Every structure is written in structure tokens, then in C-alpha cells.
Amino acid sequence: MNLRSIANRYTSRVNPNVSATIKRSTGYTTSPSGTRIPTYADLPVRVQVQTASNGDIQKLEALNIQGVHRVIYISAEVEAMIRVDKKGGDQIVFEAGVMPEDDQGTRWIISAVLEVWGHEWRKCAITLQNSYTA
């Protein structure tokens, strides 16, 4: 039974799912100058974006993550930042007009995976990085 699918039928009536692109980290390349350049694989997805609850914000504060936060529910396997392993985490890009923070598109990082339900779906905290145009 996919509980996310059942719940999404009702929540999307009030708060519609939106299109986004997951930029899944695939490592990096090294430029001739020796600078590391992150590489990503793009994955188009539909996500449910919601306001972060007080409990979600407390979890992020405990991880010392500050900034503008939202929570997404996504039916894809994504990874967050892992500081001890020096991994940057996957990014999510929203087109212009989807998020209120920017009318030209925004780039967010998946800062924490808050809930995992097998391979079916994840609840993730995302943190605004900066304006994004591609």
C-alpha cells in the first residue's frame, strides 16, 4: 500500500504538486586549473511543497542549518548533505513563478531527509541556495 499516493490525492487538491528538476550529484570533474567542478544528472519530478513545521525547523537548527526552508514530499530517492563525508547533496530546481522567493527560478539543496518510506517516497527539508537561471 502506497500511503503517499493516497495522501497526495487529498493534499494536492488544496496544494497542487509542482514540477521540478532534481540535480542528482554524480561527483565532480577537475578543470585544467585544478578546480573541482560538481557534476549532476537531471531528473524531472513532481513534488508536493509545504511549509516546514516547527519540529522540522528544530531538527535543522540542531544540524546548524540556517536559511529559508521548505519541506517536499517526493517519490524519488534523493540524498542530503553529509558533512562528515563532505558530500554536498542533491539539488532541486524550480522554474520561474513556482516558489515565492524568486520570479526567475530558484535552486535549493536537499539539506536533510526527514522521513524515508522504503523506495516509495521521502520527506525532505530543502534550503534556498540562491537565484538560478539555466
Rank of each mutant, 00 (worst) to 15 (best):
K87C: 07
I110D: 05
E95I: 00
I6P: 00
E115R: 12
A20L: 06
N130V: 01
L43K: 11
S12F: 01
E115A: 11
I22V: 15
D85Y: 11
A52I: 09
R46S: 15
R36G: 03
K86C: 10
G97R: 04
L114T: 05
A96F: 01
E120F: 09
V71Y: 00
Y10G: 05
A125W: 06
N17C: 15
T26L: 12
A134M: 03
E101H: 05
M81Y: 11
K87M: 13
A125E: 09
V113Q: 02
A134V: 02
S53D: 07
G118Y: 02
G88N: 11
K59I: 14
P100G: 05
W117K: 07
P44F: 07
P32H: 12
R9E: 14
F94I: 08
S12V: 03
S31P: 00
M99I: 10
I6L: 12
T21Q: 12
D90I: 01
G55Y: 13
N15Q: 15
E120C: 03
A76E: 11
W121P: 02
Q66I: 09
V47Q: 08
D42S: 14
V68Q: 13
D56N: 11
A41P: 02
S75L: 00
P16A: 01
I37P: 09
A80I: 10
G97C: 03
P32V: 10
W108V: 04
G105W: 00
A7Y: 13
T39N: 08
V116F: 02
I72Y: 07
V78R: 03
G27T: 00
D85L: 14
E79P: 04
S75H: 08
E120M: 07
Q66R: 12
V78G: 01
T35K: 13
A41Q: 14
Q58P: 00
V98H: 04
T11R: 11
S33H: 08
T35H: 08
N15A: 14
G88D: 09
I65S: 06
Q104R: 11
H69K: 08
S31T: 13
T21D: 14
Q50K: 15
G55Q: 15
G118L: 01
C124D: 01
N130R: 13
W117F: 09
P38Q: 06
S5W: 07
W121F: 13
R70G: 00
T26N: 10
E77G: 11
S19M: 15
G27H: 01
Q129A: 01
S31F: 05
Y73W: 14
S111N: 07
A41K: 14
I65Y: 07
P38D: 10
R36H: 10
Y73M: 12
L63D: 14
P44M: 10
K23G: 13
S131G: 12
P100Q: 04
V98S: 04
W121G: 05
